[in-house]
Design a binder for these strands. Structure first.
Length: 375
DNA sequence: CAACCGTGGCT
DNA sequence: TAGCCAAGGTT
C-alpha cells in the first residue's frame, strides 16, 4: 500500500531523469555513455553480460578490477567459452558467490554453441541461460539491445519506494514496485533509462544520507516531502547469524608448497580450492588431520558469510609426503593462480605468518583488492 | 517460497 | 570499528 501524497507532489517525469543522466552518467568500463549511444555507438553484449553477472549483489568498486582482468584475458565470448573452468574459477576468486563463475562459464559455452556466439536480444531467451534471472535478462535486453525491458534491481526498489512512500516491506512489495516502475518507464531510450536509475540509486538516492538536494525528482518524491527518505525501502527484519566452528589444516612442504583440495561443485564455495579441514558446525567437530604430522595451532581465522559466522582454528605442520588422494601440492609461488576464496587466503596467510619471519611478497595485510592482478 | 550463496567498500 | 549492505539467481 502507498501513503496518499499531497496534491502538490508532481508526477516524476522520466525526461527529467534522462536529462540528469545525460549530464552525470558515470563512466564505467562496460558502458557506452549517452552521448556516444545517441550517435549510434552500440554496446558489446558480451561486456554488458559480463558486467551484469559480476555486479549481482556486488559493488562497482569491487567489480572494476575483475572486469578489466577478465576482459584482458578473455576479450571475446569464444575465448571465455574455450577457457579451462579452473582458470575461470581462479580468476573469479575473491569476488564471491561462486555459482556465478560456474554459470558464467556454462553460459558462455551455451551461447557459443547454441546461439552462434551471439547473445539473444529478447528477455525470454536470455532468461533461459544459466546465471541469468529476471533482473539480468531485462538489464541485458535494455542496455545491450535497447529493448523496452523494465529493469528492477535494488536501486530501482529504493528509488520507487521513496518516490511513492511504499509502506509494504520487501520482499512483499516486489509486485507493487514492479507495477510502479512499469508506469514510470518512458517509451524511449530504455537502456539509458535503466542505467540512469542505477546511477541515481548509486550516487544520489543512496541507502544512507541520500543527496535529495541534487535529485532530479526531488519535487516528486513523497518520502522526501515527508522527510522520511532514509526509512525506505521498508524491510522485514533479518534473522541473526549463527556461529559455526571448524579446524583447517595448512600442511607446508619444505619447498613451501601448500596442500590443497577441491570443494564439491554444489554448496558453499562450490568448485573452489581449500586447505583440508573438518566440517563446520555449531559445536566444533573432532580433529581430522589430512596426514600424520606434528600439527600445532597457528591461530584463528574469523569470516562472516551471508548466513553464518565462521570461527576457524588453523593448524599447521611441516610435511614432506605425497599428496593424499584428491589433494595436490600447490607451489608457494603459484598460490595466486589457485581458485582460493578469500577465507582460504586468510587461512593460508595465518599459517604462513605464524610460521615465522619469511614474509613473502604478500605477508603484509592487503589493502584494497589483493586479488585481481594480471594472471 | 524461503533458504542458501561471499566479499569488500563504506559509514 | 563493527555493522550494514550491493546492478540476484537457484533450488
Amino acid at each position: 500500500m502507498t501513503a496518499s501524497a499531497p496534491i502538490t507532489l508532481a508526477r516524476p517525469d522520466p525526461a527529467d531523469l534522462l536529462a540528469w543522466y545525460d549530464r552525470h552518467a558515470r563512466r564505467l568500463p562496460w558502458r557506452v555513455p549517452p552521448d556516444e549511444r545517441a550517435v549510434g555507438v552500440v554496446p558489446d553484449p558480451y561486456r554488458v553480460w559480463l558486467s551484469e553477472i559480476m555486479l549481482q549483489q556486488t559493488t562497482v568498486a569491487a567489480v572494476k578490477g575483475y572486469f578489466e582482468a577478465f576482459l584482458a584475458r578473455w576479450p571475446r565470448l569464444e575465448d571465455l567459452a574455450a577457457a579451462p573452468r579452473d582458470d575461470v574459477m581462479a580468476a573469479w576468486a575473491g569476488l564471491g558467490y561462486y555459482s556465478r563463475a560456474r554459470n558464467l562459464k556454462a553460459c558462455a559455452e551455451m551461447v557459443a554453441e547454441r546461439h552462434g556466439g551471439r547473445f539473444p536480444d529478447d528477455e525470454a531467451a536470455l532468461r533461459a541461460l544459466p546465471g541469468i534471472g529476471a533482473y539480468t535478462a531485462a538489464a541485458i535486453a535494455a542496455i545491450a539491445f535497447d529493448r523496452p525491458a523494465v529493469v528492477v534491481d535494488g536501486n530501482v526498489e529504493r528509488i520507487v519506494t521513496r518516490l511513492h512512500a511504499v509502506e509494504t516491506p520487501l520482499p512483499e512489495a516486489k509486485p507493487e514496485i514492479r507495477r510502479l516502475t512499469e508506469a514510470l518507464a518512458p517509451p524511449t531510450r530504455p537502456g539509458d533509462f535503466a542505467q540512469a536509475m542505477m546511477d541515481l540509486g548509486a550516487t544520489i538516492c543512496t541507502p544512507k544520507r541520500p543527496a535529495c538536494g541534487l535529485c532530479p525528482w526531488q519535487g516528486s518524491c513523497a518520502a522526501r516531502a515527508a522527510g522520511t527518505q532514509e526509512s525506505y525501502p521498508r524491510k522485514t527484519a533479518k534473522p541473526e547469524r549463527p556461529v559455526r566452528r571448524g579446524t583447517a589444516y595448512v600442511a607446508i612442504r619444505s619447498d613451501g608448497a601448500v596442500l590443497l583440495r577441491r570443494r564439491p561443485d554444489k554448496g558453499l564455495l562450490g568448485g573452489m580450492a581449500e586447505v583440508p579441514g573438518t566440517e563446520w558446525a555449531a559445536t566444533a567437530p573432532p580433529a581430522d588431520p589430512p596426514l600424520p604430522a606434528d600439527w600445532r595451532r597457528a591461530g584463528t581465522v574469523e569470516h562472516t558469510f551471508t548466513h553464518f559466522h565462521l570461527i576457524l582454528t588453523v593448524e599447521t605442520a611441516s610435511v614432506d609426503a605425497p599428496a593424499p588422494a584428491g589433494a595436490w601440492w600447490a607451489p608457494a609461488d603459484g598460490l595466486a593462480d589457485e581458485a582460493l576464496p578469500s577465507l582460504m587466503r586468510k587461512t593460508v596467510a595465518a599459517a604462513l605468518s605464524d610460521r615465522g619471519p619469511a614474509p613473502g611478497p604478500d605477508a603484509a595485510p592487503r589493502r584494497g583488492r589483493g586479488r585481481p592482478r594480471k594472471s
